[in-house]
Amino acid sequence: MNTRVIIREVLKTIVKSENVKIDEPLSKYTFTKTGGKADFLVFPETSKQVQDVYQYAMKQQIPVTIMGFGSNLIIRDGGIRGIVMSLKKLNRIQIKGFKLIAQSGVAISDVSKFALSQSQTGLEFACGIPGSVGGAVHMNAGAYGGEIKVVLMECIVMTKNGKLMTLNKGQMGLSYRKSRVAEQGHIILEATFELKPGNYEEIRARMDGFTLQRQEKQPLEFPSCGSVFKRPLGYFAGKLIQDSGLQGNQIGGAQVSTKHAGFIVNIDKATATDYIKLIQHIQNTVKSKFGVELETEVKVIGEDLE
């Protein structure tokens, strides 16, 4: 048996055989609908399976890439070598009093809706964030004046050495779109949020208001990776892009949204290369006109096409 067949068969002993895919196009799993193939794409269903796949890969010196919802991600057109682990099937939510415990693969918007169903307040701001719990905690996601660090209590993570640890909020080092967990390369497996009792109708009204704002302002009709750039100190990224005359600019099938300049949308079979070139063009133009360096909020990974 060749090496690829051996790796595939071992992975099938760790997770269900239907949860192992070979040469799978990652464009099927990203919000931009772009990205090359993964050598191996694996969908573990438990933290133990995540740990076992990771430890096997470490022993065999196979690179591992963790993928959540693919909402804040651009995967280059050459794809990703080694094993990609999608955590989408780690999707359990439970509640203990006012502690809401969610596995990393649950949509953070679904956690927000679950909190609503329990008349618990604190996660309304997350009702429209298009990512997983793991991704939201990893980057301390926020919207409408709220952010993850306000409600996060603790997390279970797997370290780069394949060990499980529980970290409290202070140990997470959460700041604007950053966390110590991300810097140290830990993998988030589960998060506990501390919520408060609230009134169902009032919580729903806030969430409905946020949803309406999102629908009015964001280009939800096209594939996109959400807000592309972090907010520069003292500025708004979308305003800088708009004032640079870039709204509507297009490279290949990727376009600076005409509805919200902070978004890049896939309007016509865009490639990841189109996205990356347009991001660089925006950064260069804004730096030239305003002297401001735009830092990407979206993460770019993978290999270029040869």
Rank of each mutant, 00 (worst) to 15 (best):
I148A: 06
K287W: 10
N266L: 01
K269T: 00
K149W: 09
M207T: 03
V133G: 07
V265L: 12
G234W: 11
V137Q: 00
I83S: 03
K178F: 15
V298G: 13
L73I: 14
V10I: 15
E18R: 05
F222R: 13
K269Q: 12
M158Y: 08
R81K: 15
M153G: 06
G78Y: 06
K99A: 10
T285H: 02
Q49A: 09
L87W: 01
L164V: 11
M165K: 10
I6W: 15
K89L: 10
E306G: 03
F263T: 08
E201M: 13
I187Q: 07
E306H: 12
G173D: 10
L240S: 07
Q255M: 13
G97H: 01
F210V: 04
N91K: 03
Y176I: 05
H186V: 05
F114K: 06
S179R: 03
L73F: 11
D274N: 14
T30L: 11
H138F: 15
Q215W: 03
D52P: 01
S175L: 06
A141Y: 08
Q55K: 15
K149E: 06
V111G: 01
G185C: 08
T258M: 13
S257P: 07
E154I: 08
Q215Y: 09
A38Y: 07
I203N: 04
G302C: 14
V300H: 11
H260K: 13
V53A: 03
G68Y: 10
A143W: 10
V292P: 06
T121M: 14
G162F: 00
T296A: 07
Q60K: 15
F114Y: 06
A102E: 00
L164K: 04
G291I: 12
K299G: 00
H138G: 02
F236V: 06
T65V: 05
K16D: 14
A272F: 01
K163H: 02
I301D: 12
P25E: 00
I282D: 02
Y275D: 02
S175D: 07
E24T: 05
Y29F: 11
E154S: 15
I267G: 02
V50M: 12
T121Y: 00
G198M: 06
G291W: 00
G226V: 08
L11P: 01
I6K: 08
G252I: 13
K12S: 09
F236N: 12
G36R: 06
V228Y: 13
S244D: 00
G302A: 10
I80F: 04
A141E: 02
V137D: 02
S244T: 03
I101S: 05
Y56G: 14
V133N: 03
